[in-house]
Write a protein that binds this DNA or RNA. Structure first.
Lengths: 225, 225
DNA sequence: ATTTATTTTTAGATTAATCTAAAAATATTA
DNA sequence: TAATATTTTTAGATTAATCTAAAAATAAAT
């Protein structure tokens, strides 16, 4: 039984998770301090508590790593964070760049059943509005990769995370099509002849992109099994 | 500028609000302690802090009252609590008696804009799933009253909060009609001849209640202006 | 109007989470 | 490898929120 963690403890676990690149590398005191906006001394104190609770591994001067229990908790927090972000964007109409702060708070709500119901209500999304994958209940998440619309298989669905070229005309063109960072794009078809693609933006009507535009539009997608 | 209150401070204000019957009467230390599940000594400490912040009035041995700033905060918390309860029941499918604990946490989420959007998403409800009125942004809420289905004007809408008679047959009858505490009932029509009424439960199809049933079914309703 | 009971307040400790300043260990560099 | 720089840890304080136990004030009862 993990006696109910404080918000702070949960945030430390999450920070360690992210800094260790999904829990694989060891994290040192200073970078944790920077990421948590606090001092190395405070981090040191907290790291001892978490180690004492068997959530992280810690040896003096050697940095910390998530233990399996700690990693599992970190992943449920990431899951909650990303599901709430989907809620805020899809249901409440926030922009993708407005939701992080709110999700930072919502991710700590404790309730058996809440997240399961939220997940269902949202239609079991696999990606958050920033294009990051959402772990399932067991902490497993689909691999994501970044690719341009030009190289992706037909029927792929993903979130716009970057535009490779910062040409003003291109940006204006995308804007006029209603494409921005965070837009959810489904690739409907591709013409072999000229490499142009037809897409749907946020479930909207079919629209066309020329090959050069498609090549510069990067999305993240979860690889379908 | 109210420098951002802690969850605990917010909870004290809310407790004072409820114990003072919507902020009108003075609240004594012991009852606050009981309601907050803590000791009179702790209450005394906290009361001093809140008085120092000009949120409540306090004189030694005289109990506390909400000041206007404190009352306003208390009301926004009540508003948030009740709106989240509507969300949990209407959107996520929780039962009315499962949501209090979760709303106790959600009510402390801080975000400019979140509650406004949530309110809109929920269709600007005026009552929570327990039949309690939801304060508007300015802390004003509609008066509610309890009445039996038999005495209410046609087209009234309210939440079932009690069954006056605990006769098993009546309870079974209500159950078979799909009526339970928390059901939202709209009174569609009433027959003068026998006092029977037709109603809709949770926006469902028309159903009929005999006069004795209607007389025992209590709802809360907000008086339409 | 005393005495008794209740309520409220103070005094002094405790715990989680933080801090600053200094000491210790490790890493880097000349 | 010795000197210097960086990182990490300790020691000792601080603040919010709590506690227990005892003192003080108020209220109730004889």
């Amino acid at each position: 039984m993990v006696s109910e963690l404080s918000f702070t403890e949960e945030n430390y676990l999450k920070a360690i998770y992210h800094l260790s690149r999904e829990g694989n590398e060891s994290v040192n005191t200073n970078s944790l301090a920077e990421s948590m906006n606090t001092t190395p001394a405070s981090v040191n104190d907290m790291v001892k508590r978490l180690a004492h609770k068997n959530l992280i591994g810690y040896q003096k001067y050697k940095g910390t790593t998530l233990l399996s229990k700690g990693k599992k908790i970190a992943l449920t927090i990431v899951r909650k964070h990303r599901l709430w972000e989907v809620f805020l964007v899809d249901k409440l109409g926030f922009r993708w760049d407005e939701v992080h702060e709110i999700a930072e708070q919502l991710e700590h709500i404790k309730s058996p059943g809440l997240i399961k119901r939220l997940d269902k209500f949202l239609g079991y999304p696999t990606m958050d509005p920033h294009g990051d994958p959402i772990p399932n209940e067991d902490g497993v998440m689909k691999e994501t990769r970044r690719a341009s619309i030009a190289e992706v298989t037909i029927h792929s669905e993903g979130i716009v995370v970057a535009v490779n070229d910062d040409d003003t005309l291109l940006l204006q063109h995308l804007d006029s099509l209603g494409i921005k960072l965070g837009s959810r794009i489904t690739v409907l078809d591709r013409t072999d002849f000229d490499g142009s693609v037809s897409i749907s933006i946020d479930e909207g009507p079919e629209q066309f992109l020329s090959k050069p535009v498609a090549e510069n539009l990067m999305i993240t997608l979860t690889d379908k099994k």
